[in-house]
Structure formats: structure tokens, C-alpha cells
């Protein structure tokens, strides 16, 4: 176990999903700090604060009001200070179009929101403990979509 906690940020407009997410991470009992934002605009505002601790992993929902996940992804990758944050797309849909677009825009992994709590915990633990450097260097279109 690391001494430094892992900072995790979730951007999701759905209250239930935010609840499931926090509960799952709590039950995983890892050394993590979880922050949540309610939509895309909130996310950008949060990240642009000067005194904020940048997350190690950002879980990004795609279908959000005001600013969609894809727009956020583009903005983040255009800001030097933010572009190295590992981004996990966290979406209900797994349409080819979404997967393709987010991969091209530089997201690191694509997670289809699971429909059981057990799988949710499994996915989150896997993503959080992922060796990002290793994963990113061997990243390709085929292992982009996380399969369990």
C-alpha cells in the first residue's frame, strides 16, 4: 500500500451513479480520496482552481448536460497542466462511435457502467490500481474498452 492516497475524481450528472461510485470505492477500502462533480462545466471549473490537488484518475461520464464528457476531454487535453491526468471514460453506452471518438481524443480506458455492484467494485479496483504508465504505453484500440 502506498502512503500517499490516490486521488480519484468522478464527473457524473446522475445522483444514483455518484452514490454507487462512492459506495463501491468505500467498500474497496483502498487508500483513496474521492471527489465528485455534477457536470462538465463543474469539472472544468474544479480543475482550473489553482490550489486544487489534481486527481490521478478522472472518471468521466459522456452524457452530461451543459458540457458533455467529450467536450471536457477535448478541453483537458488542450491544457498543459491537465493533459497528463489519466482519464477513464465511464458511460452507459458503449457505441462504436463513442469508443472511437474518445480513443482518438486521448482517453486512456473506456468503462461501460456495469449493472451489478460486484462488477462495479471489480472494475473500479482494477482501474484505480492500474499501472498507468505501463497501460498507456501499450494502449491500442483493442484493449481500450475494458473487459472483465
Amino acid at each position: 500500500m502506498q502512503n500517499e492516497p490516490i486521488h480519484v475524481l468522478l464527473a457524473d450528472d446522475d445522483e444514483d451513479d455518484r452514490l454507487f461510485f462512492s459506495d463501491a470505492i468505500k467498500e474497496l477500502k483502498m487508500n483513496t480520496v474521492v471527489n465528485v462533480v455534477k457536470d462538465g462545466q463543474d469539472l472544468i471549473d474544479y480543475l482550473l482552481q489553482t490550489d486544487v490537488t489534481l486527481p490521478h484518475v478522472l472518471f468521466l461520464d459522456l452524457n452530461m448536460p451543459i458540457k458533455t464528457g467529450l467536450e471536457c476531454l477535448k478541453e483537458i487535453k488542450n491544457i498543459d497542466r491537465l493533459k497528463n491526468i489519466a482519464i477513464a471514460i465511464y458511460s452507459t453506452s458503449a457505441s462504436e462511435k463513442d469508443i472511437e471518438e474518445t480513443f482518438i481524443r486521448g482517453a486512456n480506458v473506456y468503462i461501460k457502467k456495469p449493472s451489478s455492484f460486484t462488477s462495479l467494485k471489480k472494475v473500479l479496483s482494477e482501474v484505480i490500481t492500474l499501472n498507468w504508465q505501463y497501460h498507456t504505453s501499450g494502449l491500442d484500440r483493442n484493449n481500450f474498452l475494458l473487459s472483465l
Binding site: F20, P114, S115, T118
Partner: peptide, 11 residues
């Protein structure tokens, strides 16, 4: 989405 949440709550 609602179905997935129903299933999550079920689990």
C-alpha cells in the same frame, strides 16, 4: 440507464 440502476439496486 434506468435498467442498469434497477439491476444495481437489486444487487
Amino acid at each position: 440507464e434506468p435498467l442498469r440502476k434497477i439491476q444495481l439496486f437489486i444487487s
